[in-house]
Design a protein around this nucleic acid. Structure first.
Lengths: 332, 332
DNA sequence: TCCATCTCGGCAATCGATTTCCGACCAAGC
DNA sequence: GCTTGGTCGGAAATCGATTGCCGAGATGGA
């Protein structure tokens, strides 16, 4: 639907009766320009509705003032929260943050990375889909631009990493649960995600380490649907009175929904613990006890990592526990 | 962190001992190339790890095979669902969908539009922040590329529109509520959003039209925090036994959370109705009765609108009602 | 008065691809 | 043997900006 080909610097130069160099210098303020010419140029640009063509600029300079973010799935509230906070961290003009959703697929993830690299982004932030199979994409990215892995990482790559200490998070859960529940009398069940991502992996490790290596475990994916299914299995298998620890709030909300729908009571009969600290956790009734990730801090850390173009480095943030009503406030 | 300047077509041509024209033709398959040369070129490209520079390509062709999406806020689950579905609608290779968050600000929205236009996107999808004040951005976009407004629209612009019939949605709510609640005995309160966006506007209109022009109304924004605040006011003002209709699921979830937290019962004492049909609505307990938007259909419609580059047009989809447990199933 | 220095406009090169045009070569038809 | 037509490689123009360099003119110090 382009009504007319849009104006270029050459058009502005012609109308103002100057050279394109002068137009460029006037509009970008690169070098001093005679006030009279400056006025002529500005007026001509205004009159033609001139808008710089960033493609031309990007080709000449080798920078684009753009950072790409590839997320596995925008519908997962934790990832969209990260995307939003990162956008906000780049909200002051100068650098644009563009988001691409891999839609849970390795191929689409690879396409997103290739696309951003081909577009010559100055830096790339990536939440890898898979702990091993995303290696090719992460390495390709890291070889070309400053690359930061977020929330999850692929082992043995040259890229930076920003995330939370998942084992420390599970330690907080253990501290809390063991202080309010009698673990020798009440069973603990872990509803996690298959260890395809480093975060799922580390959370499972955390459970085995702080609770017991034999903790009964159900592994699926990061979704509410999986949470519901797992809850159904827990009920079917007769784990009455269990404390259900999950790998993510979306899972926990699915578990909670199913339990309540079946008329079970929380926290009297079952306890449910989430992970991530998404907004919806606080909206549940009873509100979800969860491990909150400092999303805003992480986003700011990425911003400063990109601004100061240093060597690859890893940044582990400490999560904190948010007490909700899906776990008892004091010893049962 | 670029380890080495990445290879260009000239590098590949040099290594293969052919001209850049031949490299271009081999890699893009634009024209037949001698099999022997083809092999040499492919091997050279492989060896150098050649990746096309999309900036160079975009400058020469005037297309970029890119569609931009500007959303007001990625943390709003309805917008992130739209973004995800739209990403999926573009998941087959060929066109990349890039997302930019305006972070609720008109200035940032304008920046996003300028940025995408400057990047020469082939089409732009926009969820305008404001019904009037986004006019400049929408017009600028529509003058330059095929522009589609999504979910909300700015009056009197040349851009296409894809959304749901909000008045029809409220009509569904009225039908349902009037069939299960005695409206002459029980008050109705509308918790909406200030009519800054066409969707908020139309939903408010729908309420006035299908219920009563004098329906008590509380207007805020599209957030759970506002829902909570409104619920507090409703309790403070003594609207006991009210049926609370909201402009969005996020608001409804906030209302519900506050009511339940205050020990009120839903749907016995209060009824709560949402709008949008986000995933979290089904996870609430009791599950939320809401008006569901056909997000996937809308995304596909945008895709086909972009593929067939027609004149601007408007597409109104019909929402449907999802019966949850925050409203009674039959006459109270 | 003359030379050194500074300011600033314009020419032309440049970024990395695609694509038009030209010409070399080969095959087929008469 | 000559002409016509088809195939395919390469030289060069092109997309739209930025920027190194040159030189004209102004300024100022001795």
């Amino acid at each position: 639907m382009p009504l007319t080909r849009s104006a270029t610097m050459a058009d502005v130069a012609r109308l103002a009766g100057v050279s394109v160099s002068t137009v460029s210098r006037t509009l970008s303020g690169t070098r001093a320009v005679d006030p009279a010419m400056q006025r002529k140029v500005t007026e001509a640009a205004e009159q033609l509705g001139y808008q710089v063509n960033l493609v031309g600029r990007a080709l000449r300079q080798t920078r684009t003032s753009t950072v790409g973010l590839v997320v596995p799935d925008l519908e997962n509230p934790y990832f969209s929260a990260l995307a939003q906070q990162l956008s906000r961290a780049f909200s002051d003009p100068g650098i644009d943050l563009l988001v691409f959703s891999a839609d849970g697929s390795l191929e689409t993830e690879a396409r997103g990375v290739r696309s951003f690299l081909g577009r010559q982004v100055d830096a790339l932030v990536l939440i890898p889909v898979h702990e091993q199979l995303s290696e090719a994409s992460v390495s390709a990215a890291a070889a070309a631009v400053h690359t930061i892995q977020l929330d999850r990482q692929v082992a043995g790559t040259a890229a930076s990493y920003v995330g939370v200490s998942n084992r420390a998070g599970m330690r907080l859960v253990h501290e809390h649960v063991s202080s309010v529940v009698d673990l020798s009398a009440q069973p603990v069940v872990y509803v996690g995600a298959k260890p395809d991502s480093s975060s799922a992996h580390e959370r499972l490790d955390g459970i085995r380490r702080w609770f017991s290596p034999e903790t009964p475990t159900l592994l699926g994916d990061f979704s509410a649907a999986w949470g519901r299914e797992a809850a159904a299995r827990i009920l079917a298998d007769g784990w009455t009175g269990a404390t259900i620890i999950t790998a993510a709030d979306v899972i926990a909300l699915g578990v909670l929904a199913h339990l309540l729908h079946q008329g079970r009571s929380v926290p009297a009969e079952f306890r449910v613990i989430g992970f991530d600290g998404i907004g919806a956790a606080a909206l549940a009734h009873p509100s979800l006890t969860t491990v909150r990730q400092p999303v805003e801090k992480m986003a700011r850390s990425i911003r400063s990592l990109i601004d100061s173009d240093d060597k690859p480095s890893s940044h582990w943030f400490k999560p904190d526990l948010v007490l909700g009503a899906t776990s008892p406030a004091s010893r049962m």
